[in-house]
Computed example of a mutant assay.
Amino acid sequence: MTSHVIRNVIKAKILPAQQVVPRAPYQIQVVDIERKDMIEAINNRRRKRPYRDSSNKFNY
């Protein structure tokens, strides 16, 4: 689980989280992150990453 996935799930209002002040780290309750539906939502978001084809790299 990466911080990008967590941020996206928070932005989508799937994972409840709070910030005390802007730019502060999010505060997430352990019970929220361990919910079965939350784990499934995070795993589904991770699977949607685009495939990167390494054969199309430019060589400079």
Rank of each mutant, 00 (worst) to 15 (best):
D32V: 01
D53W: 12
A24G: 11
R47Y: 04
I33H: 03
K11E: 13
N59Y: 12
Q19Y: 12
F58Y: 10
S54R: 08
V31M: 02
I6V: 14
L15G: 07
R49E: 01
K57M: 04
E34F: 03
K11L: 12
V20R: 14
S54Y: 12
I42H: 01
T2P: 00
V21T: 13
A41P: 00
P25V: 05
D53Q: 07
A17V: 04
A17Q: 05
A24I: 01
S3Q: 10
R47H: 07
V21D: 13
Q19A: 13
K13E: 07
Y51W: 15
V30Q: 05
I39P: 00
I33M: 13
Y26T: 02
R23G: 08
Y26E: 04
R49K: 11
D32R: 01
A12S: 10
I10H: 06
L15W: 01
N43M: 13
K48R: 09
D53N: 15
T2D: 05
K48P: 00
N8P: 00
Y26Q: 09
P16F: 06
I39Y: 03
L15T: 05
I39S: 01
D37C: 14
Q27K: 14
R49I: 02
N43D: 15
R52I: 13
M1P: 00
S3T: 08
R7K: 13
N8G: 09
Y51D: 04
R49L: 08
V5I: 12
I28V: 15
V30K: 08
I33L: 15
A12Q: 11
V20S: 14
M38S: 03
Y26N: 08
M1N: 01
D53K: 04
R52G: 02
I39V: 11
K48L: 09
R35I: 05
Q18C: 04
A24S: 15
R49C: 02
N44C: 12
D32F: 07
V20K: 15
V20E: 13
N56I: 06
